[in-house]
């Protein structure tokens, strides 16, 4: 039915998906490959808008994403995750995957459970039940440090930077490089500059600027750079573009896209549909603590996603009636 399943052979092979939507549709002849990642950033909302998800999966659009039919193991694979706080059940039977080289947008209204899910992923709240697989292996996270050790970095909305320290010092905070008992300042500065250059950060004059002199977008960039400095495999960004201006949002979204193009799995939480459609490869929609759909961005329209967020259903996507 839904395009989302058609390109998840690895997930299907290792067990039934707990997604509440239907089984995979048979795939048709593959279309020519989609243009490369960089171009996708500027992808317009195209003619596919008029088609339903069913039509498109029947045409086999989704299959084109699988290079030579190779099974791509999701970096993060959650199944049947439940989480309650006291008597309040916040997450019901959540299934969620994040793939390397892709931006997965996590959308949902306030109170849908996005933040709780992120905290489960980041090891802050261990889930009550369900399976947490990282790179195919089942893992248990007891603390954020466990998550960091696996290569999971969460950039929280409030960034958590020390304003009295400079960019290099913040990037390496808590994980300083040493030479003997002293800090290896030169090495850290070089690596910081390489990382920021790798993200094509253009607007900073000096890596020795204090954080307090940076704009909101630049701070967000530093926070993201800190997450990718450590050989991370999965980066979760909680509302990175909230409270940013137009140009700065653009800048941050470009960086988000670049992270995925480097092969990282990126989970992006956002309320802004334009941002979501601009950078994401796939959209996961939460509605009242349930995962109602995880679909390719190309396969859904703006309106469908809004419907999924607000009512949990859109056509044949979402919760079954």
């Amino acid at each position: 039915m839904n395009a989302g399943d058609a390109w998840e052979p690895a997930a299907r092979a290792s067990g039934p998906q707990a997604l509440p939507y239907g089984p995979a549709a048979p795939s048709g002849p593959a279309d020519p490959p989609f243009p490369d990642g960089a171009a996708r950033v500027s992808r317009p909302a195209n003619a596919a808008d008029t088609l339903t998800a069913h039509d498109r999966s029947a045409r086999g659009d989704a299959a084109r994403w699988e290079p030579l039919g190779m099974a791509v193991t999701p970096v993060l694979d959650l199944r049947g995750i439940d989480k309650s706080f006291g008597s309040v059940k916040v997450l019901h039977d959540i299934a969620f995957s994040a793939y390397p080289g892709e931006v997965t947008a996590l959308v949902g209204d306030n109170g849908a459970g996005k933040t709780t899910l992120v905290k489960c992923i980041g090891g802050i709240h261990p889930p009550d039940a369900g399976e947490y697989r990282f790179e195919g292996r089942p893992v248990r996270l007891g603390s954020p440090r466990d998550a960091a050790a696996l290569g999971i970095e969460v950039v929280h909305q409030d960034l958590a930077l020390c304003e009295n320290l400079d960019i290099v010092q913040n990037l390496f905070l808590g994980r300083e490089r040493r030479r003997g008992i002293a800090l290896d300042e030169s090495g850290m500065e070089e690596l910081a500059r390489r990382t920021l250059s790798g993200l094509s950060v253009r607007t900073m004059g000096s890596v020795r600027q204090k954080i307090s002199t940076l704009s909101g977008g630049q701070r967000q960039t530093v926070a993201i750079a800190r997450a990718v400095l450590w050989d991370s495999k999965l980066v979760v960004l909680d509302e990175p573009a909230a409270a940013l201006g137009v140009a700065q949002t653009q800048q941050v979204l470009e960086i988000v896209r670049r992270l995925a193009d480097k092969g990282l799995a990126v989970v992006l939480i956002s309320h802004n549909m334009n941002d979501v459609f601009a950078v994401s490869d796939r959209i996961a929609a939460l509605y009242l603590g349930r995962m109602v759909a995880q679909v390719r961005t190309a396969d859904v329209t703006h309106r469908q996603v809004v419907e999924l967020i607000t009512s949990g259903v859109s056509g044949d996507l979402g919760l079954r009636r």
Partner: peptide
Amino acid sequence: YAVGGNAEAARRA
């Protein structure tokens, strides 16, 4: 310096 600047950020680091 980090704890003096932002104790929460230091803790998370």
